[in-house]
Structures are given as C-alpha cells and as structure tokens.
Computed example of a mutant assay.
Amino acid sequence: MSDNPLTTLASRGEDQQSATYEAGCHCGYVKFAVTLAPPLPEHQVVQCNCSACVRFGYLLVYPEAKDVVWHNNGRARCANYQFNTKQLDQMFCPKCGASLGIDLRERMTPHRYAISARAFYGLDLDELTYKKVDGREKAVPAGDHSGHCWDEEKQEMK
C-alpha cells in the first residue's frame, strides 16, 4: 500500500503507523481523505450481512470524524438516506449514486463515520482483511429491512 501515490504513511504515537487514503464517489463530485491506524491492509474491514450493508455494498472502516477530511464541502454534498430507526445517515453521491458510508454521529462518541472501503481510490479489495459481522441478527431491531421503507399507498418513505 505504501507505494500508492494516493496513500501517505505517517507515524502515530510510538509504534502505531497510520495512513491517509483519498476517497470519494465514482464521478468525483464527493471527495474526502481518511486516515486509518493501523493502515490498510493491516486494518480489519467489517463485512456485515445486514440489509443495508448487503444492498449498498458496504465494506466498512470506522475512523473518528477528526480523521476524515471532506474536500470542497463534500459531506454537505452527500445525499442522505435514513431507514428503520432514522438515526443514521447512509451517505451517497447525489450525482452518480455511489454508496460512501454511514454517519454515526448519533450512535458513537466520539463522532465516527463508517466509511465504505469501496470508496477508497486505488484499493485492491483482495488485499484486505475482513471481519464478518452478523448485523442481520444482531442489529436492533433484527431482520432484513430491505423493501420495507417505501409506503406504496402514501407514495412516501415510512
């Protein structure tokens, strides 16, 4: 990973290394940088089986908000989708539709993002270490919530 020009390695603390990765949507309308410690591919990427992660293709890392730098007001450029408890913003590019991750501001202190590793530029997904999580059964409320947010009669989101 260190030979990637879009990645910057740095020392964080005594022995902990970090790396900063450029990321964004497919069309380039939303761009940001993410600093992770440890750097990829030593970092564990969460592969969750909940309905959102499966449908949106999320492979997640969880940086603190201070370690995510949004370029050109990128966070404000994101379209947001909320479902189920309506407490989390699923972030998307409104131009190309790329899934970027989840804003966990209401759920985690300090504020964190769940950023999809698929949004990182120049990343080889086969080089990553995955941690499988059973979000379908462990997330509250449990179950598959796909296809249950749109009220066809009212023509609106539930």
Rank of each mutant, 00 (worst) to 15 (best):
F120G: 06
L9M: 09
K132G: 01
Q155N: 10
A139S: 10
A19S: 09
T8H: 08
A142F: 03
K154G: 00
Y58H: 10
R75C: 05
K131G: 14
D124T: 10
E106V: 11
E137I: 04
S146R: 06
Y21C: 05
K31H: 01
Q155C: 02
A76P: 02
V133M: 02
E14G: 08
P39K: 02
N4A: 04
P141V: 11
K86P: 03
P5N: 03
E14K: 12
P41D: 11
N73S: 13
C78K: 00
Y21T: 06
H111E: 09
Q17S: 10
P141E: 11
R107M: 04
T85M: 12
L100S: 05
G97F: 09
E137P: 03
P110F: 15
L60T: 09
H71A: 14
Q16A: 15
S11H: 14
H148R: 15
S11P: 04
K95G: 01
A76D: 15
Y130N: 07
N73K: 14
M1I: 13
F120Q: 04
G28H: 07
H111S: 12
V34I: 05
D89F: 13
L100P: 08
D103Q: 06
D151G: 06
E156A: 15
T109M: 07
R75I: 15
N73G: 15
S99Y: 02
C149S: 14
Q90M: 09
G122M: 13
F32Q: 13
K31S: 01
Y113F: 15
C93Q: 12
